[in-house]
Write a protein that binds this DNA or RNA. Structure first.
Lengths: 160, 160
DNA sequence: GTTGACACAACAACCTTTTTGCAATAATTT
DNA sequence: AAATTATTGCAAAAAGGTTGTTGTGTCAAC
């Protein structure tokens, strides 16, 4: 783990303690371990992946707890669920506005940071949505898959 | 069903026949029924919701078939899976570029059409992604939920 | 039309992901 | 340190999605 990540994790843990105090939530070893794991990785893990990574290290940690704690973190604003077309939830500790590229073939997710994307115009149309945030999802092929995969169909953008 | 929708469904069916012919796929009653249902609704249904809607009308239609046919439609460019933070796949028949607003509370999804969003700058950064398409996901509260739900946390954008 | 090759759907069974109720346990408050 | 309260772990099951086999439907050549 590089220094930058260590600082990020430490700051996250500090924030967690603060949020837990405010909301009268206990500071448990499980919450600490789950947040620490999520914050220190650069991928966008599912609940199960986090469970797999730390189940040995925390005394008898259960899958149920991981699911529950991650949901709590999202409520507390300590983590986000990312938008993807997959049939499972992926999480990340970076709650600052940013964007993603998702590989259509291997489902890899890469973070994209861009000032111009952060400042797109939020439409004020007739949907009456109270918009809190947004994120741009790019889809395509990652560098690993782009060469090996032959595209199945030609893009239809512009048609009916 | 209004006239606009009827035209859209008819055009989709025509396109399906064309694509099926090209790819040597059979024109089955099930595929027709599933496409017809998907194209005629304005929500963003899951495979199970489509199954529930048409299982009585098509002779002994199975859930499995709905899952498989929807996947085929995505391959053929006749439908899209939408990006959402939910742990299930949602589909839509509109494959033209557009965007979505997702309610954090009830998970409702609303389409957003906007020229300026369609033409944002695609970042050409170091991720080496071969980008095919993109979509902006707005998150917040829909008009139904905005009044009834008290927000649990204050947005953290701009913090660590 | 009939026929035949091939693709497709139904069914059941199974896997994966996520949720729930409840007793036991750990964290905070006093 | 005891009381109070929140939280976890376990088992069970609900959602959501996938796979193999066998019989049926589709489509194109005659």
């Amino acid at each position: 783990m590089d220094e930058k990540t260590e600082i990020f994790v430490a700051e996250k843990l500090r924030l967690m303690k603060e949020r837990c105090r405010i909301h009268k939530l206990s500071l448990t070893a499980q919450r600490r371990a789950i947040l620490e794991n999520l914050a220190s990785r650069k991928d966008h893990p599912t609940a199960d992946q986090i469970y797999g990574a730390i189940q040995g290290r925390v005394n008898g940690l259960s899958r149920t707890t991981v699911y529950r704690v991650l949901e709590t973190f999202v409520q507390l604003g300590l983590a986000s669920k990312i938008c993807s077309p997959e049939a499972k939830s992926r999480f990340e500790a970076d709650t600052k506005r940013h964007h993603h590229a998702v590989c259509n073939h291997c489902e890899a997710v890469v973070d994209i940071y861009s000032d111009s994307l952060d400042n797109i115009d939020i439409p004020v149309d007739g949907t009456c949505f109270d918009i809190h945030d947004f994120s741009v999802s790019f889809t395509g092929l990652c560098s690993n898959c782009r060469d090996t995969v032959k595209r199945v169909h030609i893009s239809d953008k512009g048609e009916a």
